[in-house]
């Protein structure tokens, strides 16, 4: 079957089998390997992308369900002029990543959390990171990065 959607601003159409997950579509069909797969049960959050502006787990959506949607992956988060998105920059500045595997999903979730809950408390941030597992950082610096990234996003008026 054919699916069409916009990925990182580019229109794409492909012929896929119905059971193709959005993760498989992004990784195997489009070569966008920044979206990672860390589990089979939809819990680790490494595959988080933006679907029509909201954070979703690409392993828990069929490519077919994204028909006509606007998809943004970690590769398309920054504005394309070579600078990091403020949230990406904050993760580097606050050492919010170690092995980097959960990081793309963590950053994509973080951006949506800031958009959903501006000025969130530490408790709100921690509770809403429930869908992203990190085995390296103990989350301390991820929480710091999220707050600093939120400030950066506010400064730039983007999200």
């Amino acid at each position: 079957m054919n699916v069409s959607m916009t990925v990182n601003g580019r229109s794409v159409t492909a012929d896929v089998d119905p059971p193709t997950l959005l993760t498989e579509f992004l990784r195997d069909h489009l070569g966008l390997t920044g979206t990672h797969v860390g589990c089979d049960t939809g819990q680790c959050g490494s595959c988080t992308i933006h679907l029509d502006g909201r954070a979703v787990k690409a392993c828990s959506v069929l490519a077919a369900q994204a028909e006509g949607a606007r998809v943004v992956t970690i590769e398309g988060l920054a504005d394309g002029n070579g600078d990091l998105h403020p949230m990406q920059a904050a993760f580097r500045e606050e050492h919010g990543l170690q092995c980097g595997f959960c990081t793309p999903g963590m950053v994509m979730a973080a951006v949506d959390l800031v958009n959903t809950y501006p000025n969130a408390s530490d408790t709100t941030i921690r509770e809403n990171l429930e869908g992203n597992i990190c085995r390296c950082t103990g989350y301390e610096n991820i929480v710091r990065a999220l707050k600093s990234g939120a400030a950066g996003m506010g400064d730039q008026g983007n999200g």
């Binding site: 939809g42 819990q43 959050g45 988080t48 679907l51 909201r54 954070a55 979703v56 787990k57 828990s60 959506v61 979730a109 949506d112 959390l113 959903t116 809403n128 990171l129 429930e130 869908g131 992203n132």
Partner: peptide, 9 residues
């Protein structure tokens, strides 16, 4: 329910 991403879908 679930987590933030699950609640979005």
């Amino acid at each position: 329910i679930g987590d933030h991403q699950v609640r979005n879908v």
